[in-house]
Design a protein around this nucleic acid. Sequence first.
DNA 1: ACATAAATAGATATCTTTATCCAGTTTAAT
DNA 2: ATTAAACTGGATAAAGATATCTATTTATGT
Lengths: 150, 150
Amino acid sequence: MFSLTIEYAMRAMVALAAGDGQSMTTRQIAETMMVPQSYLSKVLQSLVRARLVHSTRGLKGGFVLARGPEDLNMMEILNAVSPYKRIETCPLDLDEHSSDLCPLHRRLDQAMGMVQEAFEGTTLAEILSEDNPCPTLQTQLAKLKPMESD
Amino acid sequence: MFSLTIEYAMRAMVALAAGDGQSMTTRQIAETMMVPQSYLSKVLQSLVRARLVHSTRGLKGGFVLARGPEDLNMMEILNAVSPYKRIETCPLDLDEHSSDLCPLHRRLDQAMGMVQEAFEGTTLAEILSEDNPCPTLQTQLAKLKPMESD
DNA sequence: ACATAAATAGATATCTTTATCCAGTTTAAT
DNA sequence: ATTAAACTGGATAAAGATATCTATTTATGT
């Protein structure tokens, strides 16, 4: 249901959020989240254009979240890479004046509405706060902040 | 979020359900629901293969629902044309043994679950029973059953 | 200044989805 | 039997999504 591009964007944002403010390169994100690196660079540029992450070029450059993880939700990430188009008018309805959707498209749009609400209500911070059995992320994070809390 | 193919499949099934048991040709369905006819024929074959509709060839042939509209839900239609793959295991998790999803994919799959439940709980009969402001459908139906209730 | 690391932009390749067309087959009506 | 209507299956084309590569620009450290 969700495109690979959306998957990759979400993974990248989770990686950045987990990095705790540290800048990460495309390569680091790609390896952490097992995303094809060359394609990830395109996805990251979408996230930059949507102003969800900041990029810095050159040596020691990389990407960081533009806001705190508690202020970034899944819907924003999805929208950054593939704008979510709710069904506003029945596609069968020729004149655009009908305010209501037909029953079929009302149902389809309701489903989209549920997803939207769920995603808008879920921040990166919440995702990070839950138990995270994702092994590659943990491994990589251990490298990123080698001796943080000691 | 839902592919055009899914859209077309849903529209076709609604058209057939509205036809009240009468057989409809590809052309009739296509015109009623404004779907490209040649592509619709492929979609209909998926619905036939999934046994949601029956087809009869030859003159006076066409398509009819395989079951009553109260026994056909949106999820079956979706599955007929593009199998719904819930997220069973975290795609980042190398060994397949982890029973739980990581928080990100738990959220993604929960969204898919909500859609699935909504669609499973919605039959064609329900869709038909609601007010239907979809003008093309009504126009076409008037032709199909010209003097039904008089 | 120079070399290096890294994002950016553009061109290109591959695969999937969407769409069209045509030849073949089946059936009803004449 | 012949004809016309209609589904079926295969080939093909066009568009979009996914992926890769290369050259360019920017920044850092020496």
